[in-house]
Simulated assay, not measured.
Amino acid sequence: MRVAEITTRIVRVIEVPRSQLADFLKLPESQQVGVYFLMGDLSDAGLPRAYVGQSGNVGNRLVQHNQNKDFWNRALVVISLTNSLTQTHAMFLEWFAIAEATKAGRYSLENGNTGSQPYTPAPLQADCYEIHETAATLLATLGQPVFEPLTQTATMSNGKPQPAELFYCKGPDANGVGEYTSEGFVVLKGSTARVGNVASIQGSSQERFREQLVTDGVLQLQGTQYVFTRDYLFTSPSMAAIAVLGRSANGWMEWKTDKGQTLDGAKRQAVNATS
């Protein structure tokens, strides 16, 4: 187990490997009100799976999930050092965390619909926003950036904001726009993708991969096209191109700048030239 906290804050995050759940249950923190995140293997769409929950007794709830949820391998538990979280705090924090994690799009959430915002008095909401901010920092410190945005809308050059470098992937009924980042390739919300798959990938893992994007709500049918409902991180430019084009694709060659330069030329060859 690992513990993360900021000395000036009352929030603590405890990372509990599933294999050490029994050890966590011996801690007094396991009996507290808290919010928890179950982290698991990759979904068919290539994103790590996660589940957000809350409980008046997080230890008991994790025991239940240990019996009826198979996907997870570790839990991150958010509790108060002063044991001051109430059920009202926890319900709002759960709702807000699901909404923010969905917006970020880094994880495939097992929760489904976020539901409606629970009634929370304004002073408690203010507490919750501060707790959430601290928890988000601690989760990222523990290697789970659940709420961090996928893209940088602007970069700084000589103290002045500059537009992000965009790449485009076009085909029949497809017009993808994306950014190459340190974590992979992000296709931006509003990009369009081909609905049908070419014969060569039908019945393959690539077809199942695209079907999972539809199941997860990343791709939504609008007229004769799929539309990306949110920014989405792919592990590679090629997986992003496959999602857009509905066929096998080398993303390093398919994604191009507005001037027609390939992603390979703009990024990989530039590195080779520098070295």
Rank of each mutant, 00 (worst) to 15 (best):
F96H: 04
L21P: 06
Q31I: 05
P118A: 01
L27K: 13
V33M: 08
C128F: 06
R18Q: 13
L81T: 07
S116Y: 01
T82N: 10
N73I: 11
A136F: 06
S116G: 06
A22Y: 09
D70H: 07
Y129L: 14
M91Q: 12
Y119T: 04
I10F: 13
T141R: 09
V35N: 15
T114A: 07
F37D: 02
R106V: 04
Q67L: 06
S43V: 01
G34W: 13
N83S: 14
E133R: 13
N83I: 07
E110R: 13
P123V: 09
T88E: 15
A90N: 12
T141I: 02
A45M: 12
R49D: 07
Q31T: 09
V52P: 09
T86D: 08
Q20H: 14
G112Q: 13
Q54Y: 02
N60F: 01
R49A: 03
A122M: 04
F71L: 08
N60M: 14
R61W: 01
D41C: 02
E94D: 02
A45F: 03
L47S: 06
L42T: 00
P123R: 07
L47M: 10
T102Y: 09
D70E: 12
T134P: 08
V52H: 11
G56L: 12
T120R: 03
G53V: 09
E15N: 10
A22H: 14
G46S: 02
L109D: 06
G105L: 13
R74L: 08
D44R: 14
T114S: 03
G105H: 11
Y119L: 08
A101H: 08
E29P: 01
N113Q: 11
E110I: 07
S80C: 12
N83T: 03
Q117A: 14
G105V: 04
Q67R: 13
V63C: 04
V77N: 12
I10L: 15
P48F: 03
